[in-house]
């Protein structure tokens, strides 16, 4: 990895917004993704994940703000060699054979690694002579991943890459991706709306909802910034006084018992309160259930520039 990559984030946005004819898909996004991270881009359908990835891939132009990829504008043609993108519906030429599709990668990329690409295809048990149009959705995804990995990019942008994979192939493809990350320090952004899919894989997290970034930062930092507390619910509902000091993300009441996901300010205490550290999935589910919870960015996820160009 070059120093240049380490110095500037893989992705860095300020005031980033994208408006389609039907409305805003992304508003005022400001975040930073350092290089070499395995980042989960989580959010419900229609939360702006695909828009953000298409902006990063240079396929869309932002309506407002700036998105930098390795310190340069996402529109900069020179940045194309350093990113690889797999779109959500995995567009490939259906009449091409798998070998033709890899040849496309070889013909159009100066840093192409044919062996790496062929390894992915072999790992997925897809024959090179098969026509792309005759493959299953999961196999097509593997060919698209092979094309992305053969490019030897520094950042892989993958839009729901595991959605149509069976468990075995999902495991193998994740293994291939992680091996690439381990070997070359390649950064990966994986969008998904299935939280459990990325367990143990991601060390960075972007949670989106309603076109906004709601959580951004290192997975362990985000996790340890939260506490799950269980105790008696307040009489007449509402947030118990014992929690008033903290930022309450979400509360759920079962009978007389209340469970709350909080961002503690100091040590949470109170009579009969049980305090535990939530799993990352607990945190994500809490935020997904509470769309109005205040956003949280770790220090590393804060954008380092404020200049906004139209």
């Amino acid at each position: 990895m070059t120093d240049e990559i380490d110095a500037s984030g893989a992705l860095e946005a300020a005031g980033l917004g994208k408006k389609y004819r039907r409305g805003w898909a992304l508003t005022d996004a400001a975040f930073r993704l350092p290089a070499g991270r395995i980042c989960a881009l989580v959010g419900p359908n229609g939360s702006g994940k695909s828009t953000l990835l298409s902006l990063a891939a240079g396929l869309l132009a932002p309506t407002t703000g700036t998105l930098r990829v390795f310190g340069r504008s996402a529109a900069d043609p020179g940045i194309r060699e350093r990113i690889a993108f797999v779109a959500q519906d995995k567009p490939l030429y259906p009449r091409f054979s798998v070998a033709d599709t890899l040849r496309l990668g070889r013909e159009l990329n100066p840093s192409w690694d044919q062996r790496a690409a062929e390894r992915v295809v072999a790992e997925a048990d897809v024959p090179l002579s098969a026509r792309v149009g005759s493959l299953s959705g999961g196999q097509r995804t593997c060919v698209a991943l092979a094309l992305a990995l053969g490019k030897r990019a520094d950042l892989l942008l993958l839009d729901e890459p595991m959605a149509d994979q069976d468990p075995l192939r999902r495991h193998r493809m994740m293994g291939v991706l992680m091996a690439e990350a381990a070997e070359r320090g390649t950064g990966v952004v994986i969008s998904t709306h299935v939280v459990a899919e990325l367990d143990g894989v991601c060390d960075y997290l972007l949670l989106m909802g309603g076109g906004r970034i709601r959580l951004a930062g290192e997975a362990d930092a985000l996790q340890s910034a939260h506490r799950l507390v269980t105790g008696p619910s307040a009489t007449g509902g509402g947030t118990p006084d014992a929690l008033a000091r903290h930022t309450v993300v979400e509360t759920r009441t079962t009978g007389r018992q209340l469970t709350a996901l909080i961002r503690p300010d100091g040590t949470p205490d109170g009579d009969g309160w049980i305090v535990t550290e939530p799993s990352l999935e607990d945190v994500l589910l809490g935020y997904l259930r509470a769309p109005d919870a205040p956003p949280l960015f770790t220090a590393e996820a804060r954008t380092t520039f404020t200049e906004v160009e139209a």
Binding site: A179, G200, V201, C202
Partner: peptide
């Protein structure tokens, strides 16, 4: 085993290894 070998087999984050 190298981190690459471990993550290729287990599909976990290389930083974990």
């Amino acid at each position: 085993p190298t981190a690459k070998e471990v993550v290729a087999a287990t599909a976990i984050n290389p930083n974990t290894v």
